[in-house]
Design a protein around this nucleic acid. Structure first.
Lengths: 342, 342
DNA sequence: TCTTGCTACGCAAACGATGTAGTAAATTAT
DNA sequence: ATAATTTACTACATCGTTTGCGTAGCAAGA
């Protein structure tokens, strides 16, 4: 109903210049020596009519939007949505808003989204990058747009990055199974070149070879997990009946695995030990609970936000880029890895 | 590295006026009678240098941002995150981006977010409103900002709304339990005045009184579900040992309930029938699977987007507001409601 | 020759803020 | 008394677009 009021209207109403109002509104009145009285008068009036500056105009002029873009795999995935919640919370505290996009791990979608948000002049990006985004990331870097990668990174590009110690954690997870007397441990992972999956694979292989065991690896295609994932795992287990424990590369693979075990009427942990990379809210609800290597989401989020703010605030032309590795945490849940027939 | 190029630079390069470039870029060249040759030349050059118009300037001038705000309870909740994914998808198809916020069902947070995004000049809102937002919603309405509510609404305000038939569906859910010979059916819900919960309560009560049964109702406080939810349900069941089936008002209450039953060593469905309002990805993974009244998320999302776009495109001053009610779907999963001792 | 009517474009004022450079008046220094 | 400094503001250009109005050039009709 009521017309939008601009800084100009305020100036007119109070019979002073636009500049004065702007200065006062931006807390520069002391700095430039505006009188107490004037300052108070303006502030009071502004408060009274509930004036809100037009952010678009402000952004156009200053080049800052106070918006950060968070690009994740899928906002419906509990890991990412929790990260989103944390990052939102943290950035809000610093006066930033976040706008997110789900890449579905598709290169094309990610490129599109980056372009979109860059066009919107976001002040920075936090990205969980799919494969093949090297040139776009380099583009952002060249334009000096603050940027943090997480969960995975590109070996060929020097970026600020936050990840977990995938290799060590995967190794630990497998060792945990080995300690519990499992001897034929399969690894269900994604058919992906991305660093996090590669590192987890290496961690698995290290643990297996350290103990002189045989490795059984099943790689699923990311895009087909939801359609054929269960069948693929069933087939994997049928072809390798000696497998007595499974290590899953991510939480949604674990969920598929549980369904597969169900179908094969294999019980956990009697017939099959299970451990998951990435925790999931519901793992504790299963009977038995599913043991998992959990990524410390709040820590990851904090580190990302810190790195990003550092970049935004940094004036140095060549700030050194940082790679932060946080340790994953094993969440042991009773009996998902206790072999009963032992 | 390379400087941002503006429409002015293009005009200078091609030795034509800014107006001409702008007109061509906005597809108005035919309309205002610009020559084919000129149009082609500009388009070609623009393509060549990869020029992207500054959205901030554009928005400032036109008053449109092509951004929609989606305000939900919690982006980490699977119902809402799935809605978010759908809405994002649909709106993208119409050239809109979405920016979301999680209200955590807190009035203050919601108000803050609405203000924030209104300041950002979003072109419209889709809101799942917490209690006590009446005046803010009315504010948006008065400013003629396109707006759709979902999941719940205010009886006192006439808004475009999309909800499920909570009363009927709740009634059906309880009847489903009754059909399976359960006789003492408890309802675990939230202590909330919101329409969706009130309607579900009424649906429960209708089913119960229709059959001349006794009602057992436990209302939990939303903010304390995560801390004391399980204990509260345990207590509820301990105080009412005759209860042989539970109907849960939302999916996260069901999850708490499952933990409570676990603690009490009550089996589903032998000791306790269970049915949930709102489905959850993991309900099918439990043994036995949990039967649920599912909200048809894609339908809901579609309706919301349609209503919103209708408002945005509408020129009539007084377009009639619509309330759309979509039916929930029962997803029967074997045996979560089959009483074995019968 | 002079209007009229096209065609094909350009000028300049917004949109709503910021920030640099300036100025008039009052005060202080010399 | 005059110059210098300080105080308290203000004018104006600018950010990158869109858009209403104008107009130059030319052909055709009167």
């Amino acid at each position: 109903m009521k017309k939008k009021v601009s800084i100009k209207d305020i100036a007119a109403q109070l019979n002073i210049s636009i500049t004065t109002v702007s200065l006062i509104l931006n807390g520069k009145s002391k700095q430039v020596g505006l009188s107490e009285a004037q300052t108070e008068r303006v502030l009071k009036y502004v408060e009274e009519i509930g004036y809100k500056p037009n952010m678009l105009a402000k952004s156009l002029r200053t080049g800052k939007t106070k918006i950060i873009c968070l690009l994740i795999e899928d906002i419906a995935d509990p890991f990412f949505s929790t990260v989103a919640a944390h990052v939102e919370e943290l950035l809000n505290q610093h006066g930033y808003k976040i706008i997110y996009g789900s890449t579905k791990n598709q290169t094309a979608k990610a490129i599109e989204l980056i372009d979109l948000f860059r066009d919107r002049h976001v002040d920075g990006f936090i990205i969980c990058p799919p494969e093949g985004l090297e040139s776009d990331i380099t583009g952002l870097l060249n334009e000096r747009i603050p940027l943090v990668l997480f969960d995975r990174y590109y070996k060929t590009i020097d970026t600020d990055t936050v990840i977990v110690d995938n290799l060590e954690s995967a190794c630990k997870a497998v060792n945990y199974l080995i300690e519990h007397n499992y001897k034929n441990i399969g690894f269900v992972t994604l058919d992906s070149e991305q660093t996090q999956m590669q590192d987890r694979l290496q961690g698995y292989e290290k643990a297996i070879t350290d103990h002189g065991f045989t490795s059984y690896i099943k790689k699923l295609s990311f895009s087909k997990v939801n359609q054929t994932g269960i069948d693929d795992i069933v087939q994997f287990l049928t072809e390798n009946p000696q497998i007595d424990a499974l290590f899953f590369g991510t939480n949604y693979l674990t969920l598929k695995g549980i369904e597969a075990l169900d179908r094969l009427e294999l019980s956990i942990p009697g017939n099959m030990g299970v451990i998951s990379f990435d925790d999931h809210d519901v793992f504790k609800l299963f009977k038995p609970g599913i043991t998992a290597m959990a990524q410390p989401i709040s820590q990851i989020s904090e580190q990302m936000v810190n790195l990003l703010l550092e970049q935004i605030d940094s004036t140095e032309a060549d700030r050194k880029r940082k790679k932060i590795i946080v340790p994953a945490i094993i969440r042991i849940r009773q009996s998902s890895v206790t072999k009963t027939d032992n």
